[in-house]
Simulated assay, not measured.
Amino acid sequence: MISYAQNAEDVLLARLFDGRASGRYVDVGASDPVEDSVTKHFYDLGWRGINVEPIPSQAEALRKARPGDVTLAVALGPKSGSAVLHHVVNRSGWSTLDGALASTYRAESTLEVIEVEVEIRTLAEVLDEHSGHVDFLKIDVEGEERGVIEGADWERHRPRVVVVEATEPGSTKAAHHDWDPLMVEAGYRCALFDGLNRFYAQADDTEALELLAVPANVFDDYTRAEVAEQREARMAEIAYIRRLEEALREAEQTKQHELIEFDALRVAAQHAEQETTRARQRIAALEARLIELENAPRR
């Protein structure tokens, strides 16, 4: 498979769901429809789901690329309302509702942060409105994970797997201590921490806990999207070179054929010229003989 996710999260999920051609996901903090997407692989397989992305331009990109999905241009929190989203324009995936975190961003001269007022809804409200079983839920909201988890109704809506980003943005520092007890209380166990995310499965789901317990590895037989793109570009380049070589061979063959035809025409022209010369000589001889006969004395 081709992995589009930042840390091969889609590879682990694909291992569990084993090539299923249909299913349903909820992607909270969906961001881009392709780059670093945990759900791109599944959408291509035929899965459909809900994308939650408060940045208008990214929500619109998701709608265009994923017409089969529901895309909501809102943020999720512990209760409905509105809030200020600190949109990091030049760092995809770093936008946050966390004002303190946004302040650290502004301290970095390379980051451009603008404020956008967004609607806040709860995960429970979204899943009530768009009902149905959820195979996996992904949460990547840059510091607001607890708010999303608090806004869920874990008795009525129980995804088989929940993947939550568990480190501070751009850091290896753990950030799960504030909300991990909520997941445990909801009846989930952490199957794996992959260095970036914590993978949770329902506590009695032995299969999921076992299959998610091992990080993505060579036995999963996957290729990262950027590597696949490089291979595809290289194959396209090779195909283009081969087309040029074939065109050159055809041109050379045409040239050789034309040279052969030219040589044949040159030989034919030389033969015709020789025949013309001989014909002229015969005519001249006949004319001389005719003059000779005309001048001969008559008897």
Rank of each mutant, 00 (worst) to 15 (best):
A236I: 09
L212A: 04
E185V: 06
I241A: 13
F219V: 01
L209R: 14
L211W: 06
R224I: 07
A213S: 15
H177C: 00
A236V: 01
H177L: 07
H176K: 10
E237Q: 15
D180K: 14
G187H: 10
H177P: 00
A201Y: 09
Y188I: 01
R224T: 05
R189V: 01
F193M: 11
D220Q: 07
A175F: 15
E226H: 08
G170D: 09
A203H: 14
E226W: 13
E237L: 12
W179L: 08
D204Y: 03
D205A: 08
F199E: 14
R224N: 11
T172L: 08
A203R: 14
E229Y: 02
V227D: 10
L209F: 10
P169D: 08
Y240D: 13
A239P: 01
G195H: 10
F193G: 06
L212I: 09
D178E: 12
E185Y: 13
E229A: 09
R224M: 14
L211P: 03
A201S: 11
A216K: 04
A203N: 14
N217G: 15
H176D: 09
L209T: 02
A203V: 06
F199H: 08
F199L: 06
M183H: 08
A216Q: 03
R231N: 03
C190F: 11
L211R: 15
P169E: 04
S171I: 05
T206Q: 14
A225S: 12
D178S: 10
A236H: 06
M183T: 04
R224Y: 13
L182A: 01
